[in-house]
């Protein structure tokens, strides 16, 4: 069936490998951005301020209500103009790369989901955690950094894992804006070799394998965090004995 020479095959494999690295880079950068933004937005929008809350609702509703692909195109095509509006002459000269557009779009979209998770987790935290920290006169920054957020992350972990694997499956969309990622490389190889079946299946399996591996890590992490929590109530009695 196949009439690929070994040299050709090696060439395509190298391209696929390079594409995979770009996909991975895109994914990790976007997730880092989404996570940072999401946590910041999640904490900020707990404020009682009406305007902040309204702004959060609008933001969440928009970016959870439109396709990521559309956001990617919007930023890719319109990003320079938008930067120009914000930064003036200097901004409009910045060219938006597919990679940059992808990171910005996925970051902004998934920050909304992560912010919602973080908000939910903070609201589920027992009131006593805040009161306890205040009673001990712990400064706010340390309270959030050392007391609240670690517990929030534990509560939000299953949701974060969901966002992680869902976002991974949306990274190929950036190839439609011209990014030479794994999927683009697979498409080229598939077209040139007339072996689309093999290349696309292989690509799909790479995503599945990566997803499975990260899920495994997440489960281990969750188990470890749980262990810490379950052991806690027993320690005082041991101290007494």
């Amino acid at each position: 069936m196949t009439n690929l020479s070994p040299a050709d095959l090696a060439g395509y494999l190298r391209q696929l490998g390079e594409g995979a690295l770009i996909t991975l880079e895109l994914f990790l950068t976007s997730f880092a951005l989404a996570f940072t933004l999401g946590v910041a937005i999640g904490v900020a929008t707990l404020s009682r301020n009406r305007i902040i809350r309204a702004a959060w609702r609008v933001y969440a509703s928009i970016f959870m209500g439109v396709p990521s692909l559309l956001v990617i195109f919007l930023i890719f095509y319109g990003g320079s103009a938008m930067l120009g509006a914000v930064l003036g002459e200097f901004g409009s000269r910045i060219d938006i790369s597919p990679f940059g557009a992808g990171v910005a779009a996925l970051g902004i979209v998934y920050a909304a989901y992560i912010a919602e998770l973080v908000r939910g987790a903070i609201e589920n935290l027992p009131r006593g955690q805040f009161e306890g920290a205040r009673a001990l006169a712990i400064p706010p920054l340390i309270m959030w950094g050392r007391v609240i957020l670690p517990q929030v992350m534990r509560l939000a972990l299953p949701g974060l894992v969901n966002v992680w694997s869902f976002m991974l499956k949306e990274t190929p969309l950036v190839s439609l804006a011209g990014l030479q990622d794994l999927v683009a490389a697979a498409k080229i190889a598939a077209g040139a070799t007339k072996e689309p079946f093999v290349f696309f299946i292989a690509t799909a399996l790479v995503f599945i394998a990566f997803s499975a591996a990260s899920l495994w890590v997440a489960n281990r992490l969750e188990a470890r965090l749980d262990r810490g929590q379950r052991r806690a109530p027993r320690s005082p009695s041991r101290a007494e004995a």
Partner: peptide, 17 residues
Amino acid sequence: GAPLLILLYLVYYGLGQ
């Protein structure tokens, strides 16, 4: 687990094979 875009390519380009 497979991204939708790849599934679509797979069905569109792959099955014709």
